[in-house]
Write a protein that binds this DNA or RNA. Structure first.
Length: 260
DNA sequence: ATGCCTTGTCGCACAAGA
C-alpha cells in the first residue's frame, strides 16, 4: 500500500496539478494539507472520478486537511484532541483497509509558528504537545500507524540546504526540534530518513528568491511510522519533480510503500 | 535589512505562509 502526503497550498488552485500527480503516482491513500477550502467547497467529484473516496476537515481561507483513499474509510476522526477551543482545521485521521487489516493514517498540518516569541509560536508548541499525547495513545493500540503531513519542523541541519539561514525561524528553533525528537522518541520511524541517510532531501522550496532554481530547500514534510508500520516499510520517496511542474505548490509529495 | 511569490478574501490591499 502506497501512502503519500502533500501540502497542496490550495485545492482549487492546485486541482489540475493534483489530478495529474495522482494519475501518475497512484497512491492508495493521499494526505493533503492546506486545502484552504470549506468542506462544501472541496472539489470531491474530481477525485472520486479517479477512484478515491474523500474525507475533509476544512476551514474558510486557511489551513484545512483531507484524506483520499482508494479502499474507502472504516472510520474518520476530525480534529486533534486536547483543546476543544482550537478552531483551526489541522488534523484528520482515518482507519483504512489494508490487505492484512486496518491501518490508521493521519493528515497533519502542524502550525508554522512564526514569528518566535509570539502566541503563534506558543500555539505551535502547545499543538506539538497535544500531538505527542495523541500519538502516545495511538501507539498503545499497537496497530500500523502513519502520521503524515507538513510538520513545519526542520529536524536536523542536514535537512536544510542552508541551515544557518533558518536560525531564529520557528521551523528550526531548538524548542520545535526538541518537541519533534520527543515525538519520534515515542517509537516512531521517520520513513524518509530511515531509507536515505544523506543530504539533498528536501520537500519545500520557497516561491521567492529563486529557491527552487537554487535548490535552496528544506525537509519539513514527514511520514512517521509506528513499529507495526515500520516493520512493513518497503520504500519511501520524494516526488521532487512536481516542484518544477505547471503552477506548483511550494511543497512536493512524499510517500511510503508498505507491505500490507 | 527587506522583499523577493502565491493564495484566498464579502479584494480594490492585506494576512498568512515558511
Amino acid at each position: 500500500m502506497k501512502i503519500a502526503t502533500w501540502n497542496i497550498n490550495g485545492v482549487k488552485a492546485r486541482l489540475e496539478a493534483a489530478l495529474s500527480w495522482l494519475g501518475s503516482a497512484r497512491p492508495d491513500v493521499a494526505c493533503l494539507q492546506e486545502i484552504k477550502s470549506v468542506d462544501e467547497g472541496f472539489p470531491r467529484g474530481a477525485f472520486e472520478d479517479l477512484g478515491y473516496q474523500v474525507a475533509t476537515h476544512g476551514q474558510k481561507g486557511f489551513n484545512g486537511v483531507a484524506l483520499l483513499s482508494r479502499t474507502g474509510f472504516d472510520e474518520v476522526r476530525r480534529g486533534l484532541p486536547g483543546n476543544d477551543a482550537d478552531e483551526q482545521a489541522r488534523y484528520i485521521e482515518a482507519d483504512v483497509a489494508g490487505a492484512r487489516g486496518l491501518i490508521t493514517v493521519a493528515s497533519i498540518y502542524l502550525p508554522n509558528g512564526n514569528p518566535i516569541g509570539t502566541d503563534k509560536f506558543a500555539y505551535k508548541l502547545a499543538w506539538m504537545e497535544r500531538l505527542e499525547a495523541h500519538a502516545r495513545r495511538l501507539l498503545a493500540l499497537e496497530m500500523p500507524l502513519v502520521l503524515a503531513g507538513d510538520y513545519n519542523v526542520i529536524p536536523e541541519p542536514i535537512d536544510a540546504r542552508r541551515p544557518a539561514a533558518w536560525t531564529g525561524d520557528a521551523l528550526f528553533q531548538p524548542e520545535s526540534r526538541t518537541a519533534w525528537r520527543r515525538l519520534v522518541a515515542l517509537g516512531l520511524t521517520d520513513a524518509i530518513r530511515a531509507c536515505y541517510p544523506g543530504d539533498d532531501l528536501y520537500t519545500f522550496w520557497d516561491y521567492q528568491a529563486g529557491a527552487w532554481q537554487k535548490n535552496d530547500g528544506i525537509r519539513i514534510d514527514h511520514l512517521l511510522l509506528s513499529p507495526q508500520a515500520a516493520d512493513r516499510l518497503v520504500a519511501a520517496g520524494i516526488d521532487r519533480e512536481v516542484r518544477g511542474g505547471e503552477k506548483p505548490s511550494d511543497h512536493v509529495p512524499v510517500w511510503v510503500e508498505l507491505d500490507t
